[in-house]
Design a protein around this nucleic acid. Structure first.
Length: 417
RNA sequence: UCCGGCGGCUUUUG
């Protein structure tokens, strides 16, 4: 059995799932019964290939009792795809079957819930884990601190940090970065800066992540000079800016109309060995479109492709928005065709852009048609869609239509809740 | 046989 399991594991790891399943059949014929390890290996192979439904079926149909590893695999697979309800359902199911969750089970849930912004539930799982006498490791503490900090629950994050210390885990740069980035996200710039100062006094130099977070938030709040000062400071301290640091600054320049500065920083970035990626190109292109330089934006779009950097849906959204804002709907729709051909799927934002630009330009009918189309394609209109359309309808003296949409919005949002 | 670490880009209401 062990030999077969090892071989099956190897096949799964190299993505040869079909062969792995064949080998499993062969071992049965050789009257060697597959054991839980065999099935877990196959289930993991399926889950990693994104075939979660099949993975779940295999657990039920294998005739072998699932164990904690089986559940961990499936819960992780579901959580990775944001299917938290299904993951939590399996978690309950495993407890119903008297299978004890492991540290890993809790860790996966705390982290994945946190990633989907559900820090309250992360905390709930964490407490449940401790009730059961399970001792968290440093990773689990980090997942929880991250989840709490990201959702602005900084006091709670700090109290968990104290518990972590009491458990004998020393906080490190990453631990503090969770707090710093959390403060930045909550726009508590002074507090973030203060925390960094405290760490400096304690002899802990902020790393590139902390500096980038501070630079980013200063840029976003219009304090470009301070962002640039931090940029210089980090270099003096021997902390090398990376792609994300540059992208934040390029974005800040672009948003403030400083397109020349954005361009030259982009060049400096390349000269310093950072290969531009989609985000950095997008930030630069965005700045150009906002400055009305659609020609320059298009040139960069071409350059991006020529450099082997594949435009993503954000790239197209930026360009489509720039074009449609300028009233060039035909080129905008041409780009939609192009993204279609390239296999890049539009998202809710793409539709929002078109709907809002069309309605602002007075093409309310086309906008409403697109609204229907997006729903029929399975996209759920969000606040942007509704607010944009309602605003345009009101301004177009179609208050009744606006009211109907408003009611529809309320009906749908309560359904989602 | 199972997980996992922090920061960057786009759309409404000037």
């Amino acid at each position: 059995v062990v030999t077969y399991n090892t071989l099956i594991h190897g096949l799964c790891k190299s993505g040869k799932l079909d062969e792995a399943f064949k080998l499993c059949e062969e071992m049965k014929r050789a009257s060697c019964r597959p054991d839980p390890v065999t099935y877990n290996t196959l289930i993991d192979g399926l889950a990693k290939a994104g075939r979660l439904a099949e993975a779940c079926n295999l657990m039920e149909e294998s005739g072998v009792h699932p164990n904690a590893v089986t559940y961990n695999i499936l819960i992780n697979g579901l959580g990775k795809r944001g299917l938290m309800e299904d993951a939590l359902r399996l978690f309950e199911q495993m407890k119903d079957q008297a299978i004890d969750p492991t540290l890993l089970t809790y860790g996966i849930l705390v982290e994945k819930l946190g990633k989907s912004g559900r820090s309250d539930e992360s905390l709930r799982i964490f407490l449940e884990m401790r009730d059961k006498g399970c001792v968290p490791d440093k990773f689990l503490y980090h997942s929880l601190i991250h989840a709490l900090a990201k959702t602005g629950k900084l006091a709670k994050a700090c109290s968990i940090l104290r518990e972590m210390k009491q458990d004998g885990y020393m906080p490190d740069v990453t631990t503090y970065n969770f707090l710093i980035t959390g403060l930045c996200k909550a726009r508590k710039i002074a507090e973030a800066t203060g925390l960094v100062a405290e760490l400096k006094e304690a002899g802990e130099l902020p790393n590139v992540v902390a500096y980038s977070a501070l630079i980013d938030i200063h840029g976003k709040s219009g304090q470009i000079d301070e962002a640039l000062r931090l940029f210089e400071e980090m270099k003096v301290q021997g902390c090398t800016p990376d792609l994300l640091t540059y992208s934040s600054l390029i974005d800040a320049f672009g948003k403030n109309g400083r397109t020349d500065d954005a361009r030259s920083l982009f060049e400096e970035m390349k000269a310093n060995g950072c290969k531009p990626d989609q985000v950095s190109y997008n930030a630069l292109i965005y700045g150009l479109t906002k400055a009305g330089d659609l020609y320059g934006a298009n040139k960069l779009y071409l350059e991006m492709k020529a450099n082997g950097c594949t435009p993503n849906v954000v790239t197209y959204n930026i360009l489509v928005d720039g074009l449609s804002t300028a009233g060039d709907m035909s080129t905008a729709f041409g780009l939609l065709d192009e993204m279609n051909k390239k296999g890049c799927d539009p998202d809710v934002t793409t539709f929002n852009i078109l709907i809002i630009r069309l309605s602002k330009a007075g093409h309310l009918e086309s906008a409403c048609r697109l609204f229907e189309e997006m729903s029929s394609k399975g996209f759920v209109p969000d606040d942007f869609t509704y607010n944009g359309l309602i605003d345009a309808l009101c301004k177009g003296n179609k208050v009744e239509e606006a009211h109907r949409l408003f009611d529809q919005m309320n009906t749908h949002s309560t359904l989602v809740d």
